[in-house]
Design a protein around this nucleic acid. Structure first.
Lengths: 240, 240
DNA sequence: ACCAACAACTTGTATATACAACCAAATTAC
DNA sequence: GTAATTTGGTTGTATATACAAGTTGTTGGT
């Protein structure tokens, strides 16, 4: 592996294990150059690329720092629904309906890289905004990656928050559908009569593979997904 | 402006005016270095950054080339529905219902940066897969940016294809909703009875501002949106 | 106490150089 | 003619150096 890549790996691991928390300072170009016995330009490249990936931020004359790990993505960012609600100035609450271990259904197994009937964690949660149900979250979690999932208290921390802490996300896969809710969903979303719902299916990955598969169902009248997308030909403004 | 930035600007302009078409070769590091009287490392930086932005691709021992401009984005890429259908091996067709100039409604005006009742182009198209309606596309187009829009033949070229040619996209904004279709929509989507529909609202921009606002409505039973998202903490595999 | 000047450190830009890795085409050997 | 080799061009990595530009804390003067 190239030297600059080794430095990157080292820094990534420090960040991942928490040795370098968010917004903490990381070694300067000169310090890294000395520690790894490379030239400053090589150390610089590692810092530079991590900055381009959004992992660090740097300020001339000051130093380089660990960036906040959340909300990295421009489009359909992985939002924490609790933050979203609170950002609107509304009251967020959650109702835990179920949190169990169960034998893995075939379709879930293939998505999470497990075998059928392997144990899998399952949680069912209603997210509420001002005590109105906003989203029904059904989630399957890979117990090999997140063994502590089943013993969490999800009344004041969303699964997404917990999982982000335990297994830092590297990738996510989405599908958005419009569905007709079944009776069970209607009941828990407190829909007086059925209406079109958005269902976001989200599969998340960490460095070691698939972590969880979530079905997030929201009434069309109460929820929309928004996003922003940048293309390759940039505007006139520089973006560095 | 820094030297490497000047080189980038130059190369971007060459690509934008079409002097350097897709997949054509661009000057090598040494050539650029000589043309701009800079060192190879400085020319290299311009090429490097354009590569990171997805505008070029490079191969060791071969050269640097202009990347394809379409489908740059990882998540919810701007797909051309015709390509999507054909990729499934199905027959794509379109039915043009309307193509007119009309006075701009207020809400459209604000989205496109026009004044109310300014002339605006409007098109209404049904996209079909194997002669089954897949999507109803209602689109408002800024006539200042795309004056030729109204005289196009959209039976064999989608508006998206045409607009991509005329006004290269730089940004797009999306909203996804689940809606209950009105009678008009049901009729044109040939829905025997109403069912939940996905409505993707898409506003696109070129360098000079908003180009068009489109409402894309699809029956939930026939259409899903998929996407993939990469986060900042990369996998072990290098991605350069 | 306040302000100005300075020093130390940081990141940013740029250059000149060297060698490695890779590819394609021309040349050579058989 | 075919295969192996060489050659030239290209990108990739790494180094040593120099100076510019920005921030922060210290020092010193008033």
């Amino acid at each position: 592996m190239a030297k600059f890549a080794e430095i990157k790996e080292f820094m990534l691991s420090q960040i991942e294990i928490g040795a370098w928390p968010e917004h903490s300072r990381v070694p300067s170009e000169n310090e890294l150059a000395e520690q790894f016995s490379v030239s400053r330009m090589t150390a610089r490249r590692a810092l530079q690329e991590l900055t381009e990936q959004g992992i660090l931020y740097r300020t001339q004359g000051v130093g380089s720092f660990v960036a906040a790990l959340k909300s990295q993505s421009s489009l359909l960012e992985i939002r924490n629904i609790a933050d979203e609600v609170q950002a609107r100035g509304h009251a967020y609450s959650a109702r835990l309906l179920q949190l169990t271990e169960l034998p893995c259904p075939t379709i879930i197994a293939s998505a999470l890289g497990l075998q059928r009937n392997d144990p899998v964690f399952f949680s069912l949660i209603v997210h509420l905004e001002n005590n109105v149900p906003l989203q029904l979250e059904a989630r399957y979690v890979n117990p090999l990656q997140v063994p502590g999932y089943i013993s969490q208290d999800f009344s004041h921390q969303t699964p997404h928050q917990y999982l982000s802490l335990i297994a830092p996300l590297t990738e996510a896969e989405h599908t958005v559908e419009a569905i007709w809710p079944d009776d069970f969903t209607c009941k828990h979303l407190m829909l007086k009569k059925a209406e079109p719902c958005l269902r976001l299916t989200r599969r998340t990955f960490s460095r070691d593979g698939a972590v969880s598969l979530a079905y997030l169902t929201s009434p069309g009248s109460r929820y929309r997904l928004g996003g922003h997308l940048n293309f390759s030909l940039p505007n006139n403004k520089e973006r560095i």
